[in-house]
Amino acid sequence: MTMADGATPRVRDFYNAFPYPPDPLQDGPPPGYNWRWCYATAYSHCTGQAPDPHPRQPLNILDAGCGSGVSSDYLVHLNPDARVTALDISSKALAVARERLRRSGGEQHIRFQCISLLEAPSLGRFQLINSVGVLHHMADPAAGLAALARALADGGILHLFLYADGGRWEIHRTQQALGLLGVQADGAGVRFARQLIARLPEHNSIRQRHQRRWNLDTVDDAAFADMYLHPQETSYTLEKLFRLVEGCGLKFLGFSNPRIWRLNTLLQGEALERARALPDRQQWQLIEALNTDISHFEFFLGKPPLPTHTWNCDEDLLAATAQRNPCLWGWPGARLLDPDLQPMDLDQEEVNLLKAIDAAPSQPLQSLVDAAGDRSQRRLGEQVRALWRRRLVLLCPTPN
């Protein structure tokens, strides 16, 4: 029996009319990268260590709610040894996804399924599940999360993206107004909605917010419709989000956009000192209260058992193997974009160390003491640890 969420017919019809995301098709691999879709970097972000380089089972990845295949394309190309499965309820979106993967050269490494996310457990168990912008379009997001939890392998990680209530107030008001006016999710509805926003008074906050923040994101009609005319949507506060997560058997592993959740981006002085004394969750709630631009939550959950490695012990560190983070733009060179595409400058000693790591990715770091010149074990440990903290290298402990 085919399983379906209560909102499936409406959501399926919507995405058949507006396949999303509307990114153009192109020949060849996708441009750049997204480290959240690279299993090695995502796993290291969540646990502190790289995954086992010699796993017993092949790496299985699920893109749960793949839409037009943008995320699937990255998952295939950033994980060349993985078996990727992509599911979606929209046949029209999947047709675009298949063509995208054909043109990018990734079609041999992926299988597509036109089924509900609720059926994910029937497809097997996955070490990485990506489900971006999906649960909040279900009538019962908790049931969707429970299905993903069952499909996640022991020790696996799940990446989610859900709407945040506080940073979408103008979208919610526009949606309400369009609903009252009986605007439909079709081409005529998109044209009407665009005109409505454009003809609001110049001082109107909804118009100003759209022009300042969302205008470029909604140039394509599919993107505009997804934002303002979607038939099923739920948004979350942090409190509501953690209620959703509790009871699913998964552990919260942290946000995948950690810069947003740093207190010193908003506070200073006494306020910062007081905030740092709060438990983590209350710190995040404080940031949520003060940052009115948080329009979504993106985060990782994991299924135990999962390691936690801090690399405080030099002996463990020097016995580990290292690899350069594959999600660095501009390597080899001293001026890089880090995994979050932020500018980063390296000194020559750091460049030389990364090159030495590149040349011996399967060798214990101890072997680099002499290869790196006059660097002592202690100095090597300090430098590698600094590179790890900046997410420039991934570290894998020596097997017991």
Rank of each mutant, 00 (worst) to 15 (best):
T2C: 01
T2H: 13
A7N: 09
T8I: 00
R10A: 15
V11M: 06
F14V: 05
F14A: 05
Y15D: 07
F18E: 01
F18K: 03
P19Y: 03
D23K: 03
W35F: 15
R36H: 13
W37Y: 14
Y43S: 06
H45Q: 14
C46K: 03
G48S: 02
P53M: 10
H54C: 08
I61C: 08
D81V: 06
T85M: 05
L87H: 09
A93V: 10
A95Y: 07
A95M: 13
A97D: 13
R98E: 15
R102I: 04
Q108G: 13
R111V: 15
Q113M: 14
L118S: 14
A120C: 04
N130M: 05
M138T: 04
A139T: 09
D140Q: 13
A142R: 15
A143P: 04
A146Q: 14
R150I: 01
L160N: 11
G166Q: 12
E170W: 12
R173G: 03
Q175S: 10
G179P: 00
G179T: 11
D186G: 05
A188I: 02
I197E: 11
L200F: 12
P201R: 01
R207H: 05
R209K: 04
H210E: 01
R213N: 07
R213C: 09
L216R: 09
F224A: 00
D226K: 06
D226L: 06
D226V: 06
Y228P: 03
Y228I: 06
F242Y: 12
L244W: 08
G247S: 14
C248I: 05
G249R: 06
K251E: 15
I260M: 12
L263S: 12
Q268R: 07
E273N: 01
A277Q: 12
R281W: 14
W284Y: 15
E288T: 03
N291P: 00
T292V: 05
T292M: 02
T292G: 00
S295Y: 13
P304W: 02
T308W: 12
H309G: 00
H309C: 12
T310D: 00
D314Q: 11
D314L: 13
Q323F: 00
P326T: 15
C327R: 12
L328W: 11
L328M: 11
W331G: 10
A334H: 08
L337G: 03
P339K: 13
M344N: 02
E349G: 14
E350M: 12
V351K: 02
L353H: 10
P361R: 10
P361L: 11
P364W: 09
S367F: 00
D370A: 14
D370H: 09
Q377I: 00
G381R: 02
A386G: 02
